[in-house]
Design a protein around this nucleic acid. Structure first.
Lengths: 407, 407
DNA sequence: GAGTATATGTTCCGCGTTTAGACAAATTCC
DNA sequence: GGAATTTGTCTAAACGCGGAACATATACTC
């Protein structure tokens, strides 16, 4: 039951029904491809004539194409299969992180083309923009046979205003209110979309078609890495909030008297489960203070820690288990406040999932209000799926499939 | 940008445009009444002819009525004013609380008719249903001149399945999976809607037309009383979650090593700011353990405490201030995770708002990630506005104004 | 191999809804 | 009293869904 905002509504015009049904048809083709006009009409519960007209419109815009004839099920004419047209169009995803920046080329459906490219992130916004423009051009030149680039999606670990194309605050990059979109778009001559990485990851999961996961219900993406990034999907839409800062569960406290967090507050979830927090527990000293690391800790990563834990290092295992417990306790807050159908977790710590799942799950049950909540589905998103890059790509590819704004 | 769920969508039919525009017209009349057909057409940016047809349909369903002619602005024919038709229809709101149950009669727009009626809550569901049916019948008999009752809305402090009409778990009432709706509806012969009280309060604020508050953006209702109830509105819709338990910010922790909470976990926000928590701090002993109170504390309420604080009792002031601080720290979690445009706060503690606002605000700023967040609007909802009862009424009245499900 | 049954895709008309514009009624200004 | 202006109604056109007929294509049957 949604309220109509009397100061911001959209009246249904003559073409509104068509617009709605066109998008439904497009989404059904995406979800069920290959599919015939007749099957589409059955799925939509409209006459074949209507489906044909909708398909005709999508065909004329090259959003879909007619493939080979399918096999006749029983007797009767063979159906013409329809497919989403991701030929001769590509998308570039960019993931800017504190240390390195990653570039990936995909088709319109998000299928990866070529390898992921990366280079060192310059904290000087002008230098980075130049680097990025050059690298993206290079990638597009290397793959000139995959067609025109529809757009570039960029994700940033920080607060973003997607409408203005500005990064409002990215602590790890030291940026405050910089225009990232327009200079890059000008240099490339291609539309650029920017977004916070947690929200983009949530968007990517929302738009990913996986046969094993039902798409309905709210979901939350939690990325545990240097920081904790989160994105929340409510009613098929990424929750943005008043200033596009909704979903920052990383800074909900586990203990307000706890350790200092990078955000300035104390005892945030992030301060308990980030990679540095885990390593700090292992080494028994605070590594989050920003001072240069000593020889022992300089290049030691959470993956190394997990390897030691798996190899039987009791201290390493204790540090990992501790993080697992805090992870579960924080997830409980997400479950109690959002009650999602699914939680996706990404980040280095997930490589230890088989080790830590029981601990996460039991910690989570300690604080969830209901048994249902305690049983909330948790999906691990491995690093090889490049969730942030796929999120960046989704920024470009998803809008074409979005529901029209109505009422 | 909303995704169309390929397993649950709604195709636009021939009448869908009309349905959409009819609801928009109805909402605009509600927001701007009295209003003429011509003004309605201008607001909707459609021809007067279309507005006339929509109005005609609403008139024939008695959702609106034509009042007196308005004054001509300049020259020209005088407009006929249109009004929402709340004549000869009424709604009953019921607020079931641990100790007492309250009943209020309103018209369709939520305007209170008569006084709020109350009686002691029986924890036996059958007895309560009987009591309630008798009392509601009595109220309707006393006000037989206000027309037919459109429905009864019931709010319950606990977990509810509105679709099934069942209370799944209400700890303070000791109910687990009881059918409250159907027996009551059968006894009254009137449709009954039930909902969690926090969600209903949020719904009421969403549907309240206040000229001073812009309706757009997310909002959160926080009710601080025996427990902490919350309801979250995202994109004009109350956030329900997978099991209708979304929005339970009362059990997000301030400190996982903190005091035990009624939910079984430790250090929940509720365990710091509920009325009993505040009183416990004042008396220096735990009053939440459920044991019978002693003479000193038996009938002492938070209002009494606030009176003492205002009168200069330093210990009372300290207890209130402490609660204020915890209140602000918890609100920061809401702001960081939902980034609402507005937060509404209800409950006894709000009578001390002038006293505690600076403390709440500064505590909140300690933990909000951005300056915008720290400046989030906070509105106090005084007890005289009966937020829970208005929420109960909204359960019945709001659906007629809701946006049609589309796409 | 011809006839029949069945499925797909197209075409045509009916009807509901928006869009555009004309028109009568009502009111004020000059 | 006439002109200008506003409101509300009405009619025709454009657009899209709803339903059914029709052509096309395939498999089964005799």
């Amino acid at each position: 039951m949604r309220k109509i905002n009397p100061h911001d509504f959209k009246v249904a015009r003559r073409g509104t029904s068509r617009e709605i049904n066109r998008q439904i048809a497009l989404n059904l083709i995406r979800a069920h491809q290959p599919i015939s006009r007749a099957d589409l009409a059955r799925l939509m519960n409209v006459r074949r004539g209507v489906a044909s007209l909708l398909v005709g419109e999508l065909l004329s815009e090259s959003l879909i194409f007619e493939g080979a004839l399918g096999e006749a099920v029983g007797r009767g004419r063979r159906p013409t299969f329809l497919y989403i047209d991701s030929r001769q169009r590509c998308v570039v995803g960019v993931d800017i992180r504190a240390s390195r920046t990653y570039i990936m080329l995909t088709d319109l459906m998000g299928k990866q083309l070529g390898v992921v490219n990366s280079f060192q992130t310059s904290k000087d916004i002008d230098v980075l923009t130049k680097d990025l423009a050059r690298r993206v051009k290079q990638v597009l030149a290397d793959f000139s046979d995959v067609g025109a680039c529809e757009g570039v999606g960029v994700v940033v670990p920080g607060m973003v205003d997607p409408a203005l194309g500005r990064v409002l605050h990215a602590p790890t990059l030291g940026w405050r209110d910089v225009n990232l979109r327009d200079p890059l778009a000008a240099a490339l001559g291609i539309p650029v979309h920017i977004e916070n990485s947690g929200k983009a990851c949530a968007l990517a999961q929302l738009w990913t078609t996986r046969s094993d996961v039902v798409a309905s219900g709210n979901s939350v993406f939690v990325s545990v890495s240097d920081g904790v990034g989160t994105g929340v999907v409510v009613n098929g839409e990424v929750m943005r909030g008043r200033h596009n800062t909704a979903g920052e569960f990383g800074h909900v406290p586990l203990n307000i008297d706890g350790p200092r967090c990078s955000c300035g507050a104390t005892g945030c979830w992030e301060a308990y489960v980030s990679n540095l927090a885990t390593l700090s527990r292992y080494f028994g000293r605070d590594l989050t203070d920003g001072r240069p690391r000593d020889a022992e800790t300089a290049s030691f990563t959470v993956e190394d820690l997990i390897a030691r834990a798996r190899a039987g290092d009791a201290k390493a295992l204790a540090a990992v288990n501790s993080t697992a417990r805090y992870l579960g306790l924080g997830l409980a807050s997400i479950i109690n406040s959002v009650d999602p159908a699914r939680i996706y977790i990404g980040g280095e710590i997930t490589t230890a999932w088989s080790l830590i799942e029981p601990i996460v799950r039991s910690a989570l049950r300690e604080r969830t209000l209901t048994d249902f909540g305690g049983a909330t589905e948790i999906h691990i998103v491995p690093a090889e799926e490049h969730p942030r890059l796929r999120g960046a790509v989704a920024l470009v590819a998803a809008p074409a499939f979005a529901a029209p704004m109505v009422a």
